[in-house]
Amino acid sequence: MDVDPRQYEQIKINDKDSHNIILSYLIHGCYKDTVESLVASAGLKVSATQLEDMEKRKRILQFALKGDALDAIHLTEQMSPDLLENNKDLLFDLLSLHFVELICSRKSTEAIDFAKAKLTPFGKVQKYVGKLEDFMALLAYDEPEKSPVFHLLSLEYRQHVVDNLNRAIMARESMSSYSELERIIQQATVVRQCLSEELGKDVLLPFSLKDFLKRS
Results as ranks from 00 to 15, higher is better:
V100H: 04
L152G: 00
F114R: 01
F99Q: 03
E143S: 13
L84I: 04
L94R: 06
E145Q: 14
I103K: 03
L102P: 04
A115T: 08
P144L: 03
L90K: 02
L84N: 04
F63E: 07
V100L: 04
N164L: 10
F63C: 11
E77T: 07
K146S: 15
A64M: 03
C104S: 15
M79V: 09
D82C: 10
T109K: 09
A64D: 00
Q159R: 15
V162R: 04
N87T: 09
A111Q: 00
S80E: 13
V161M: 06
K127D: 10
F114I: 02
V125D: 07
P144D: 08
D82G: 07
D68V: 09
R106M: 04
D89S: 10
R167I: 04
N87Y: 02
P144C: 03
Y128W: 05
E133K: 15
P144W: 02
F150R: 15
I60W: 04
M136F: 12
K107F: 10
S108F: 15
P81Q: 00
Y128E: 03
K118S: 12
F114S: 05
I60Q: 07
A140M: 15
L102C: 09
A117T: 14
L90E: 00
F114W: 06
P148W: 06
A137R: 13
E101I: 03
D82P: 06
Q62C: 14
T120S: 13
I73H: 01
V149L: 10
M136W: 15
Q159N: 15
Q159T: 14
L95Y: 03
L97N: 01
D68R: 11
P121V: 06
I169Q: 01
Y157P: 05
H151G: 04
A69L: 04
K131C: 08
D71R: 05
E85Q: 11
A137S: 15
I73T: 06
M136L: 14
S80D: 11
I73F: 03
L139T: 00
Q62Y: 15
P81I: 03
V162L: 01
A117G: 07
L75I: 13
H160P: 06
P121W: 08
K146P: 13
P81D: 07
M136P: 07
D89W: 02
H74W: 13
P148S: 09
L90H: 00
A168N: 00
M79P: 05
T109M: 14
N164W: 08
D163P: 00
N164D: 03
F150A: 15
K131V: 11
K107A: 13
V149I: 12
Q126E: 15
K124S: 14
D113T: 12
Y157H: 12
K88I: 13
R106F: 12
T120G: 05
K66E: 12
L84S: 01
F63N: 10
S154C: 11
A140R: 14
P121N: 02
M136Q: 10
L138W: 03
A168V: 08
F150T: 12
A168K: 02
Q126C: 08
Q78Y: 11
S80M: 13
L61N: 01
E143G: 10
A117H: 13
T109C: 08
L90Q: 01
H151I: 06
L155C: 12
I60D: 03
G123Y: 06
K116Y: 10
F99P: 01
D68M: 09
Q62R: 15
L102R: 02
D68P: 08
M79F: 07
E77N: 11
D142M: 09
A111G: 08
G67T: 10
